[in-house]
Design a binder for these strands. Sequence first.
DNA 1: TCCTGTCATACCCGGTAGGTATCACCGGGG
DNA 2: CCCCGGTGATACCTACCGGGTATGACAGGA
Lengths: 287, 287
Amino acid sequence: MDALETRELRYFVAVAEELHFGRAAERLGMAQPPLSRAIQQLERRLGVSLLERNRRGVSLTGAGEVLLHEGRAALDATTAAARRTRRAGGADSPGGPRNRLVLAVKAAGSHELLQKLLDAYAAEHDAAEIEVLLCGICEQEGLLRDGRADVALMHTPFNSLAGFDSEELLTEGQIAILPAGHPLAARKTLSLADVSDVPDLPLARWPRYGTYAPGPGPEIHDQTQLAQLIALGRTVAVVPDSARAWLWAEHTAVPLTDAPPVVTHIAWPAHSRSLALARLVRTATCL
Amino acid sequence: MDALETRELRYFVAVAEELHFGRAAERLGMAQPPLSRAIQQLERRLGVSLLERNRRGVSLTGAGEVLLHEGRAALDATTAAARRTRRAGGADSPGGPRNRLVLAVKAAGSHELLQKLLDAYAAEHDAAEIEVLLCGICEQEGLLRDGRADVALMHTPFNSLAGFDSEELLTEGQIAILPAGHPLAARKTLSLADVSDVPDLPLARWPRYGTYAPGPGPEIHDQTQLAQLIALGRTVAVVPDSARAWLWAEHTAVPLTDAPPVVTHIAWPAHSRSLALARLVRTATCL
DNA sequence: TCCTGTCATACCCGGTAGGTATCACCGGGG
DNA sequence: CCCCGGTGATACCTACCGGGTATGACAGGA
């Protein structure tokens, strides 16, 4: 039983995502016929049919769905291996593994916590160099998985901690951010039901585990966009308390009574064995 | 930047484990020169030196250590993808993903819990078929990681749950198992200090995260061997309470007052999306 | 009916993975 | 001191196969 080659996985994932051999081939920078053949070989080698070739386009079989999921995970692990090895090698000469960590943080996250963490860690005895990688709303998971980051600050219930090790750092309540002029902005407190049901102010939606939940509200990609939309009176958002730091004059924050608390974790790949990482985690939990 | 190929990872892991090109090549079923060349190409492509070629044999650089770890993880993910896809495909014709789960259980584990779980699940409306895969003392993690199993019963603090999702099922205390004739066997209770310090009865050692801690006691591979060694008066073991089920007449069990409790979890790969698995987990937690 | 868009097939070429033979190097023993 | 055994590296060749181009088969729509 021969193992899958990275190339085959890359090809299959491309086809499975595009559901179209021509487009997938273009994305891969190759011609369509060799791609067709490669997928056929893959199916033959696995002894399993992965794609349903319909008269118009392609669709995934059950096994195809499985390979799409597992293949993505395997590809991420492979590119992570390459990236982390390259980084470890850069400073091989000083002896011992490279003293440098990439920390992924949501750009809109609490500046206060991050600053405290960096300061406390920098004060440690021969601390590693920390490279802060600011990312979008929900990108930390991917960054950790494919090795672009070594450690991340994540926020449940927005991020999923599945597959990572983590430690709890901070718990905070949530607030609603409304356009300053809106009637609800005058209230002392609000409930989730209050803000979910406003006809003229649909609730903003963010990616959760990579996809957007259906709903009438706008899809949020970054914090600036959200702030603008609220200021324009187009939406209302439910966000952690620390978001008060970036409110505009056109915004009003109202505490929510029944929103689930947001917990900030420090998270890292489960199999990590780096000493520098362990020290950073210890610093973080002792803040 | 081109991705690592599975083949290259396989080659490197073999060399890194053997620390010897000739033996590694033999293990891979190929000649030594192409292997040397492949590793050189890999180093050039990564722009990193992975192996220190000494006058006699080879040793790993820092980057090499990283690639060994990460590469193993990536290879596991890749073979898991192949295995799970093959299994999913076997019953593709009936439509929908294959209704079959492989459950890894330590052979020496509690029969009672397992039986209850299987019965309860079998009673469910159109339950999946469960294949029970009995394994050695600490093999569940590897089985889950490389796709030979879909779900496992694991026991903290013996197994590591790192990288898996899990739910707690059962907590139990620990007991010491002694040769029936030993003086300590007459005691009503014991402490960890009592059983750690017996000169003529060194404490048995099991693999923890794959390796054995150093110590005078015998290394335990399976439960039968342990039972025999205790009966022969060669060792004493600290085990979960449910191990009383397999005691011999030559054994005596004494409760421990200060041993950490053993928690049985049901665990599965973090990215799993199978419906059958979710149902099994729900059944297990509702036992 | 033909045209269009899809994936599969036929065929060719070049790069490269792998094999064999050999070298370069070092340590140890007669 | 020199040669031998064992290490990894180099040289060179071959054959396979990954990829390209051209074309086919097939179904839907005007």
